[in-house]
Design a protein around this nucleic acid. Structure first.
Lengths: 109, 109
DNA sequence: TTTGTTCATTGCAATATTACGATGAATAAA
DNA sequence: TTTATTCATCGTAATATTGCAATGAACAAA
């Protein structure tokens, strides 16, 4: 039905899924990488940097902002985006904990 | 259009997105967590463990298997799934590298 | 062989996602 | 004020995802 049955999963499982979903599109990965690469914040360079239309980039930025991974500040007519380092660190911890599960003698079958 | 323009992104960006997408559903997160928790492999316990119908679980397992995150071995009428530790390590490295980007003085705006 | 068990596959309905043109809001420059 | 620039939002088309009932395939037990 296109909609996940979130109510049957734990908060952590849902949280991991929501964060991972944000990374689940190459455009959002590219946006985040670019924001990391630039020492200072970037604005609509993202549109020319990545080859997608402006509304499309704007939509991806909105999702990342909604999740809290990035922040956006208005500067005149342009908007400056940057990584929200505090939230990034939190999310990284959640994902890392999931990825770092013990792999000892897990090569069964 | 519901379809990502993968051709305009780098291989790494697409790879990160594909892996993250696999983690982007709580059912798949739950499946992986369960496979990690069990010392030995699990089979269709996943269906009763997670509250989804058998075809739905089977479909999620298929995606995880296709990506290489898990392996499935037939044992009589049942199928035993487990983490593919080698591939898990590889994917973990790719995601970790993405998550570990430098955050120094990235609190602009 | 027949029956039951386990799992995969198919087909479908409901919803989500992606992408973009058109448009609007806000500000800066002329 | 007029015009240009930058970005967000709306509306919509195309496609993807999620979930399950129905069914099929493979095997084990009787």
């Amino acid at each position: 039905m296109g909609l996940a049955k979130t109510e049957i999963f734990t908060d952590l499982q849902n949280e991991i899924a929501v964060i991972a979903k944000a990374f689940g599109h190459p455009a959002r990965v590219a946006i985040l990488q670019h924001l990391f690469k630039m020492d200072t914040c970037v604005c609509g360079d993202l549109v020319s940097e990545i080859g997608l239309a402006q509304p499309t980039i704007s939509q991806h930025l909105k999702e990342l902002k909604l999740l809290g991974l990035i922040k956006g500040n208005v500067e005149g007519t342009s908007v400056c985006y940057c990584i929200d380092s505090e939230n990034w660190t939190k999310m990284k911890a959640i994902i890392s904990q999931f990825l770092d599960q013990d792999l000892s003698n897990k090569n069964c079958c």
